[in-house]
Every structure is written in structure tokens, then in C-alpha cells.
Write a protein that binds this DNA or RNA. Structure first.
Length: 632
RNA sequence: GGGCUCGUAGCUCAGCAUGGACAGAGCGAACGCCUCCUAAGCGUUAGGUCGAGGGUUCGAAUCCCUCCGGGCCCGCCA
């Protein structure tokens, strides 16, 4: 919270010094130096001024510092120094910064580190959107977790965020398993003990795709099923809808297990039937984004011209709409550019106490809250869809999105490591990884990952906590498992391919989620064992050890990190910050005794510091969707 | 062929938007630290032509160009 104040103050003082010296206006940077011996903040303005002033940077820096020195009294700034290299280095006055930071964290822990940059703006986030014919695999996990962390970041920055999960209940993939059940003899009931979504994906979907190869008439059946599903009246269509719901309910269990939550399920079939497409098509025609092609390879089609791309067919020459004709009206609905054709019903209650709604047509209720109409709409889909998503963005900006923005947040695929591929009997030779394939049954199930992590964590927890009940062991193991996978899925940049290795993913040490939880648990045990109530106004000026100062500084930065994560849509930066926070604490833990400190004032100040660290770490973990554990 | 994207230590990755001070972590390796708040921890050592080349600049991992290598996307399929 307070590092921001310190930074602002440095900027203000610098600007004054520059004005006083009559310097020309230049852009300059105030940021943390690479090495801590240079101080807490550094400025490069002397380099920027070198050319206009025709003077050497060290000289400029030295002169500016002369002016600064007079101004820093009674501020958060302790010193300003000119480094011979030309930088101006600032040190914070920790006698002020410490108490400001720690008192704040201790007195309002529930919102410490959160920020108001969103100012209540409405943001719509879509994630998950897994075809309802199979169970989630690790690739889907990345989507769910990125989306959910983004949602939490938006909440932490005072955005009004709604989360959508798009259910493609009228597509080919659902048709495939319906063909399996109705025309290929698959039992509708899974074998005992097998989740229905796993059964549909692992057995029915994979095998029906094998059968298509040998049995072409089955492919014809799929067309029939697809057609009936679209018309939505027949017994077959009702059967398909039942299957979809059953799979969806199982998928949601997995998502909830990962601590994701949603506001609304958008059924694709409702978009199709709602005639939203017709309205969107009118909008497109009116704004001349689409035209009827008179000749060429797209003769007889309505096409859109996309910037630097080939024309995209919107309406086929037989008058039927392509899939983009579902995406565009849906996107327009999200932005609130078309009248809302849906009514809503309460689908199910969720683990966090919120209600998950679902779209419906006719009946139900009008929206009791705003699901759509976001000032910003963020759609989380893997980057293979980047091209199409770009076209959708372009189209929407042309049909009157105005200041509203449709944004595709892409991320790279999760692939399988060489060793994990071997587990499927596949040798990938020299290659580093291989892509998963739902159709071929080559993927690692999300539930399997969670179960395996849970089992490993269970053993670790049991070893360390012999007194735990079975219930405690399982509850703790589950939290550790979730933190491991959540952290694993967001700690790297979105545009990096994740090569998933079953063995490697089981690590609970080093740069992992459990490491963060462990640091937190250690901090809470110190507080618990002290048996003392922490004094929120302890004598913080007694905290002078290097490790203590480092911790205070990190704690003071939380809101800057949260704000930055929201601005740059970057879950990763929060993960990295949390890791640094934990590392800083672990260092303190090694070097600075708390309970054994003889001086009562110092002990209390350290306890307060430990408690404040706990507040910052817990709040950071909350945003990552990781539960802070008191013991593990 | 065109577009997008990645290429930093043996492996996995930060740093790149807004160019600046000796390029940082984790894993793995070797060695060390529990009579002391949970060792899921901490430390030491080894390990780097920042893919290559050119350019801009006082200064480039960071910006620009070319090339090389990996991946993805380019259907009247969804």
C-alpha cells in the first residue's frame, strides 16, 4: 500500500527538482534497481537529460541531488544519492514506511493490498467453455485457472465482474456421443465407479471416432443427429439435451474442485434458436461489413472482409450460416449491442455460496442481475483461435462497440512431455513434446491430476501431522493439490507452451503452490505458539534487520502488483510476487528469531511483522485461488 | 506460400511494454545446515556467445531489419 506513496513521493520530489533547475521536459523512469545495494528506487532521468543539456549523466545527477537533498525532510524518502554511473538512487525511510505499512495491514486485513483501479466498471469474462461431451483434461485446466484468477484479479481491483461459461450443446462433438449411444450400442450408463464425463470422453467419443473410419454410414447418422439437435423438437434431440446436461454437471464438479465459479451458463442452442443471428446479420449489413459475393470461389455467399486476411464466409451459398454466425451475435450480446433475448433460471448453487444461472428461452425470469453489457469483454480461448477472435473483435468494433471492447485473451497449449507420451505408448523421438488429442484419447484427465496430487500431498501431510484426523488429512491434502496445479498453470507467461509431465507436476517443493502455503503455515504457527495478541501499534521502528526490512518492503508492494496484474491481464505477475513474498519470509524465518527474542518490545514488533506478512500473503493467495493453510 | 508466436544456465522459466549500473529464480548436480518458531525450508559451489548476423543508440537480452530453428493458424468443418 505504502510503497506506492513512497514512489509517488520520489516522483514528485524529482519533478520539483527538475522544475527548479529549469530542465526540459523528458520522460523518465522511477523503478526498483536490480541490486538492492543501490537503494529502494532508482531514476534514470540524468541519462534522459544528457542530450538536451549536453552534459554528462553523472554531473546532471549530482546537481539534481543537491536540490533534492533539501526537499526530502519529513517525507518517506530517507536519502537521494547520485551514483557515479549516472543514476539517482533513493532510500526509503523505514522508520516511517514500516509503521505505515504494517499498521495498515494489521488494521484492515480483509482488503489489504486491493485497489480501486476498476472503479466499479463492469467486465465480462468467459472461460472454460468445454464441449459437453467429455471430461476436462490438463489443457482445459489451464483455461479454467487463468480465467478464474483473472476474475479474482478483477474483483480485487473493484471491477464488477461476471463470469460466463459457454456450452456448445449443439455441436458435432455432442452429436458424436449421441451417435455412440443411439446407433453404436454404447450403454448410456457408465461402468460402476466411472464418472459420466470420463466415460463419454474416454470410451464413447474416442471409440465412435474409430468406428467412423470403418463404418461410413455412421457418419450419415451423425448428420441426422446434428440436424435433429438443431431443430430441437424430436425425442433424439431431448436425449441429446439430457446427455449434455449430465456431462456438464460432471464437468462443473471438476471446475468447482479447482475453486472456479461462474455466474452464467450460455447454451449455444439458445443463441441459435433466439434469432440473435438475424439481428446481428442486419447490423452487419447496415454497417456494410458483409457483402454478397457475385463471383469467384465464394460466389453466392455473404462474406466479411477482414483486415489482412482472406474473406471469411458468413452465410453459405445454400443460405445456412457458418459457425461465425454463432460467435458474432454471442459476442455482440456480451457487449450489450443487441437486445437480450434470454430469460434466466437458477441452475445450481455453487461452493462459494453464489448461484449459477443458465440461459433459457421463454419462461424463467428476466435477468435479476446484469450478465452481459460489459464495458470490457474478455474471452479466454487458446491461441489457435487467435485469427478468428481477431476478426470478431474487428467486426464488433465496426458495428458500434464504441468505447466498449471485445478482447481475446489467448494462451498457448498444454502438451505432453516425452515421458508422459510414453505412458500412452507413443514414442515421440527427438521431439520435446506432443499435442494432446481428445479424439484419439491422448490426454491427461483433470480429475486424474487432482487425485494424484491429492494422494501425494496426503502422504506428506500425514507424515508431518500425526495427530490429524482423516478428515483433516484429506481437507489439507486437497488444498495442497489445488494450489500445486493452480500455481503450475499460471506461473509462466500465457504465450509459453506448457509441457506437462505427470511426474514433474507432482513436485511440491521449490517454485510451487505448496511452497507458498508452507511459508504461510510457518508464519501462523509462530503467531499461535506465541500465545500473545498482536499489538497493531507495536514499536515497528525496532525492525531494522535486513531480512525484516526486505519483508516490509515486499508487503508494502501488494497493491501495486495487483493493479499491474489487472492492467496487463497477467495472472503470472501475481504468482511471481507471491513467490518472492514467501521467499523473503523464509529468509527471515532462518535468520531472525521471534519467539526466542528476549526483548519484549522487539518480540512484539516481530510478531506484528509476521502477522502482517500473513495478511499480505493470504490476500495474494486469495487472488490466485489458493487457500492459505494454518497447518500443513 | 502468407500470418501469428516462441527461442535467455543441462532442464523449466523471470527480466523485454516505458533501452541504462556485475542477466535472475526453480529443478537437476556436488557439498553443507534440524539439542533452535514444521527441513514442503535455508546456504555454498558449478553452470550463460541472452538462437545467428546486421542496424539504431553514449548504452541493446530489451527497439528495428534479415536469417535460422520449434510451434500454431490459414475450409461454403465446428
Amino acid at each position: 500500500m505504502t510503497f506506492r506513496l513512497f514512489k509517488d513521493e520520489v516522483r514528485r520530489l524529482l519533478q520539483q527538482a527538475l522544475d527548479d533547475a529549469g530542465c526540459p521536459k523528458v520522460d523518465f523512469d522511477v523503478s526498483e534497481p536490480q541490486h538492492k545495494e543501490f537503494g529502494d528506487l532508482a531514476c534514470n532521468v540524468a541519462f534522459q537529460l544528457a542530450k538536451p543539456l549536453k552534459k554528462a549523466p553523472p554531473k546532471i545527477a549530482a546537481e539534481l541531488v543537491e536540490g533534492l537533498k533539501l526537499k526530502i525532510r519529513d517525507t518517506l524518502v530517507l536519502s537521494a544519492e547520485a551514483h557515479p554511473a549516472g543514476h539517482i538512487n533513493f532510500k526509503a525511510d523505514y522508520s516511517r514506511l514500516s509503521s505505515a505499512t504494517l499498521a495498515r495491514a494489521l488494521k484492515s486485513p480483509e482488503n489489504y493490498g486491493y485497489h480501486d483501479s476498476g472503479q466499479g466498471r463492469h467486465i465480462v469474462i468467459e472461460h472454460t467453455s468445454v464441449n459437453p461431451n467429455k471430461a476436462l483434461h490438463v489443457g482445459h485446466m489451464r483455461n479454467v485457472i487463468i480465467g478464474d484468477v483473472l476474475y479474482r484479479i478483477m474483483k480485487a481491483t473493484n471491477h464488477r465482474a461476471t463470469v460466463l461459461n459457454y456450452v456448445d450443446d449443439s455441436g458435432l462433438q455432442v452429436a458424436d456421443i449421441v451417435v455412440g449411444f443411439k446407433f453404436a450400442g454404447f450403454d448410456v450408463e457408465p461402468p460402476k465407479g466411472k464418472k459420466f464425463d470420463h466415460y463419454c470422453g474416454d470410451a464413447v467419443y474416442v471409440k465412435i471416432n474409430e468406428m467412423y473410419e470403418k463404418d461410413p454410414p455412421l457418419v450419415e447418422k451423425r448428420k441426422l443427429v446434428l440436424k435433429e439437435m438443431e431443430e430441437g423438437k424430436s425425442e433424439l434431440a431431448r436425449f441429446a439435451a439430457d446427455i449434455t446436461l449430465r456431462v456438464l454437471n460432471e464437468q462443473l464438479k471438476t471446475c468447482w474442485r479447482m475453486r472456479a465459479r461462474y455466474d452464467l451458463l450460455n447454451f449455444e442452442s439458445h443463441i441459435v434458436v433466439s434469432k440473435l443471428w438475424g439481428k446481428a446479420f442486419e447490423l452487419l449489413k447496415n454497417s456494410k461489413i458483409t457483402h454478397f459475393e457475385e463471383e469467384g470461389k465464394n460466389k453466392g455467399c455473404w462474406v466479411i472482409e477482414a483486415k489482412d486476411e482472406e474473406d471469411k464466409v458468413l452465410v453459405r451459398s445454400d443460405g445456412t450460416a457458418t459457425y461465425i454466425a454463432k460467435d458474432i451475435p454471442y459476442a455482440a450480446w456480451k457487449l450489450g449491442l443487441v437486445d437480450d433475448p434470454f430469460s434466466y433460471h437458477e441452475f445450481v448453487g455453487q461452493w462459494d455460496g453464489s448461484t449459477l444461472y443458465a440461459t433459457m428461452l421463454g419462461g424463467g425470469k428476466p435477468a435479476s442481475k446484469e450478465f452481459n453489457g460489459g464495458e470490457r469483454v474478455i474471452t479466454i480461448i487458446d491461441s489457435r483461435q487467435a485469427r478468428l477472435q481477431r476478426i470478431i473483435s474487428q467486426v464488433l468494433s465496426k458495428i458500434g462497440a464504441g468505447t466498449r471492447e471485445y478482447f481475446h485473451l489467448g494462451y498457448e497449449a498444454v502438451t505432453l512431455s516425452s515421458d508422459t507420451a510414453k505412458a500412452f505408448g507413443i514414442d515421440i523421438g527427438d521431439r520435446q513434446f506432443m499435442h494432446m488429442s481428445g479424439r484419439k484419447g491422448i490426454y491427461v484427465n483433470a480429475d486424474y491430476v487432482l487425485d494424484t496430487l491429492h494422494a501425494k500431498a496426503y502422504e506428506e501431510v500425514k507424515m508431518r501431522n500425526p495427530g490429524f484426523t482423516e478428515q483433516q488429512l484429506n481437507a489439507t491434502a486437497e488444498e495442497v493439490a489445488i494450489s500445486a496445479i493452480r500455481y503450475n498453470m499460471i506461473k509462466q507467461d500465457l504465450d509459453k507452451i506448457i509441457t506437462f509431465d505427470v511426474k514433474e507436476s507432482l513436485s511440491l517443493e521449490g517454485d510451487t503452490g505448496p511452497y507458498l502455503q508452507y511459508a504461510y503455515a510457518r508464519s501462523q504457527r509462530i503467531l499461535e505458539k506465541s500465545g500473545q495478541t498482536v499489538d497493531n501499534d507495536a514499536r515497528f521502528e525496532l525492525l531494522t534487520h535486513e531480512a525484516e526490512i526486505a519483508m516490509i518492503k515486499e508487503i508494502a508492494k501488494l497493491d501495486l502488483v495487483v493493479e499491474d496484474a489487472a492492467r496487463s491481464l497477467s495472472p503470472k505477475s501475481l504468482a511471481r510476487y507471491s513467490y518472492i513474498l514467501a521467499t523473503t519470509f523464509n529468509l527471515f524465518y532462518e535468520k531472525v528469531p521471534v519467539l526466542k527474542e528476549g526483548n519484549a518490545d522487539i518480540r512484539m514488533a516481530r510478531l506484528a511483522l509476521v502477522k502482517a506478512l500473513g495478511v499480505a500473503l493470504k490476500n495474494a493467495l486469495d487472488v490466485l485461488g489458493i487457500t492459505a493453510l494454518d497447518r500443513m
